[in-house]
Amino acid sequence: MRPEGDAPIGPRLEEIERATNALAHRIIKTPVVSLSSDRVSAALPEGATVTMKLELFQQVGSFKARGALLSVDRLEVTERKSGVVAVSAGNHALAVSWAAAKEGVSTKVVMPKTADPIRVQGCEALGAKVVLVEDIHTAFVEMDRIKEHEGRVAIHPFEGEMMTLGAATCGLEFILQAPDLDAIVVPVGGGGLLSGIASAVKQVSPDCTVYGVEPVGAAVLARSLEAGKPTTLDHVNTIADSLGSPVSLPYSFSVAQANVDEMVRVDDNEMLTSMVLLYDALKLASEPACAAATAAVCGPLRSRLAGQRVGLVACGSNIAEQRMADLIVEGRSIFAARKS
């Protein structure tokens, strides 16, 4: 965590405010909702006031639209002619496809074969050329190959100033919508969302504790922070494919290292039961990654957040109907097994 009075590592508040103004009327200022319903309150920390930012209502269904649009905005004329390339299990691919289409820029996205078909179809509907590869590791290699051979500009899913800055606009919105938060809980893939939100929150409300949440089977940022440097996972194993980055990278790592207070891990079952909770209480069709923050608040952070004012980010909703139904059934079976 950055010592009080030091210059911020990451986007400065004035940069975040300028980016917010640049995105105005092109993205959605997503609402916040108090989780005060009796249908959900029993699962939350005792005496806590919990507020959720519904970023899953964002353009193309996730926070990624912010950084993708800022990235396309900064392209030079020659770069716009060459086009862009991105790698993603879905949300970032959709966001880049959408942002590039808005500006008439050619897009190629590399996705693992396991990507949700609704995400692949969504990219194609936006005019992007989709390249399917074996896994996420291969996808990054293919993105680099396309960049080299076709001259396209690579828009990384989480690493870089524009992706962190885009996420920071979400963080600034949230802390202004809910200014008295004691803690904020954010899902983590590679660290772009967390680094951006944390950098904004710490400049506006430095006493607010920032928690990052990773799947047990994809905890690359937590491992990196423990090691004091970016690291790589040999294997990723989680149902939350949007949080399945195998690598931590220097810029997002350094911003997170300076601004994040603590990392926590949740397992797949905790995300599944939180998906059920969000569906039953709010009728939100959340993907597993979207339920990660709720899983942390209702699980490993539950006792520690008792009596506090807590914010959590619902980050995305790009999930096929049948997969959503299957995961809800699986989550309900976990609930039933716990009660028996």
Results as ranks from 00 to 15, higher is better:
Ala95Trp: 01
Glu159Tyr: 03
Gly189Phe: 11
Ala219His: 15
Leu176Met: 10
Gly331Ile: 06
Gly331Glu: 04
Ala240Arg: 10
Ala48Cys: 14
Asp267Ile: 00
Val133Cys: 10
Gly217Arg: 12
Leu278Arg: 02
Gly104Met: 07
Thr49Lys: 13
Ala219Lys: 10
Gly299Tyr: 02
Asp182Leu: 09
Ser106Ile: 03
Gly212Trp: 04
Thr49Gln: 12
His25Phe: 04
Arg309Val: 07
Val213Phe: 07
Lys202Tyr: 05
Val131Ser: 05
Ile9Leu: 13
Ser205Cys: 06
Ala178Asn: 15
Ala258Thr: 05
Val264Lys: 01
Lys29Asn: 09
Ser286Pro: 10
Ala168Gln: 07
Val260Gly: 04
Gly190Trp: 02
Ile155Leu: 15
Pro230Phe: 12
Ser71Cys: 06
Leu132Cys: 10
Ala336Glu: 14
Lys64Asp: 11
Lys64Thr: 11
Ala218Tyr: 08
Glu55Thr: 08
Leu243Gln: 05
Ser205Ile: 05
Gln177Pro: 00
Val201Arg: 00
Tyr251Ala: 03
Pro230Ala: 09
Gly316Asp: 03
Ser62Cys: 07
Pro157Gly: 11
Gly244Tyr: 06
Asp116Leu: 01
Gly47Asp: 07
Val87Lys: 00
Gly127His: 07
Thr209Lys: 15
Phe253Gln: 06
Ile155His: 04
Val260Ser: 08
Asp182Cys: 08
Ile175Glu: 12
Gly212Glu: 13
Glu103Pro: 02
Arg145Ile: 11
Ala218Ile: 14
Ala256Pro: 09
Arg338Met: 08
Leu75Ser: 08
Ala42Glu: 09
Thr169Ala: 06
Glu330Val: 00
Lys147Gln: 15
Gly5Asn: 13
Gly122Val: 08
Ala168Asn: 07
Cys298Val: 14
Glu17Gly: 01
Leu193Met: 10
Leu305Thr: 07
Val266Tyr: 01
Arg26Ala: 09
Ile239Thr: 10
Ala183Ile: 02
Thr78Ile: 04
Gly83Lys: 10
Ser106Gln: 13
Gly217Cys: 14
Val141Asn: 02
Leu301His: 08
Leu301Ala: 06
Glu287Trp: 03
Gln257Met: 09
Ala296Glu: 10
Asp73Leu: 05
His137Cys: 00
Val84Lys: 04
Arg74Ala: 12
Leu56Lys: 04
Phe63Gly: 05
Ala125His: 02
Ala258His: 08
Val96Asp: 00
Val204Asn: 01
Met111Phe: 12
Ser106Lys: 15
Tyr251Met: 14
Asn21Asp: 15
Ala306Lys: 14
Arg74Trp: 01
Asp38Gly: 10
Gly189His: 12
Thr49Asn: 12
Ala291Met: 12
Lys108Cys: 07
Lys129Tyr: 01
Leu249Met: 14
Ala198Lys: 10
Gly67Ser: 07
Val247Arg: 14
